[in-house]
Amino acid sequence: MKTRYSHGGDEHIFVEVDEEMSLDAFFKSLSMTNALREADIDGVTEICPANASFQVKFDPDVIAPGDMLDKLKALEDVAESAEKKMTTRIVEVPVFYQDPWTHETLMRFRERHQDPDGTDLDYAAKINGYDSAEAFIEAHHSSPWFVSMVGFVAGLPFLYQLVEREKQLQVPKYLRPRTDTPKQTVGYGGCFSCIYSVRGAGGYQMFGITPMTIFDPEQTVSYLKDFMVFFRPGDIVKFAPIDRAEYDRILAAVEDGSYRPRIAEVTFDLDAFNADMAGVNAKLMEALDGA
């Protein structure tokens, strides 16, 4: 890992902890943003952690960009020695794979795709060495995922697959971004899955849709009354495949306020995970099954 610092205009500093994605880079980035928040530096207005990088927005009338850069660099050593462990939660997210709505959308934007004659799932299955879309779907939901960034648009989680690197799914983004994506589409780009929180533009491949609302500006959804955004970095997600009938049932339950996402509190220790991924995942699943 080699940390790189760059000014982003006169109001931002961008810190790339590593060029490539890893949970080690995520934890170091998270530690640096935590240390920065605790340092409570005058002039800092936004601290945005990302997958393997983060960004600071500041007021250059209060703190000079050069001074801001020096303060950030000084935090790097603190972050190196921070504990790579967090108390978090595992959440089950139901997914209706190969649904009609993302299918209609992906057909509409076919000329922007690498494989204009297939579907996003067929293409993803092929380039990852799976015989069928169904086998690929199974790989997508059979292990848990780690929320390594929230953003792009309101409350959208980026999810990193909790498996050995050689087993991780990788799919390129669309050649040119779409201007439309259905709300709550489960997408994929690079090594990340995501859930589009709102309808809008997007460049990730589309695999399915969840009936579970994850952003509610009106805060009428029962589990979003405290805050309109559901996900936060560090959350762990388990996708659960559902059919159309189950999709319709959950959608109605979200609307009438009776739906409660399945959630369990867990501890995630990166060193323990790196030492025994299957074992840690089994414990995570056990916690979720008990919820």
């Binding site: 490539e20 945005c48 997958n51 927005k57 953003g151 690079g190 090594c191």
Partner: peptide
């Protein structure tokens, strides 16, 4: 790793 195959792709990060 994680960026995607197009040379204009990066591991998703923040945009100023």
């Amino acid at each position: 790793f994680g960026a995607g195959s197009d040379p204009s792709n990066i591991v998703d990060g923040c945009y100023p």
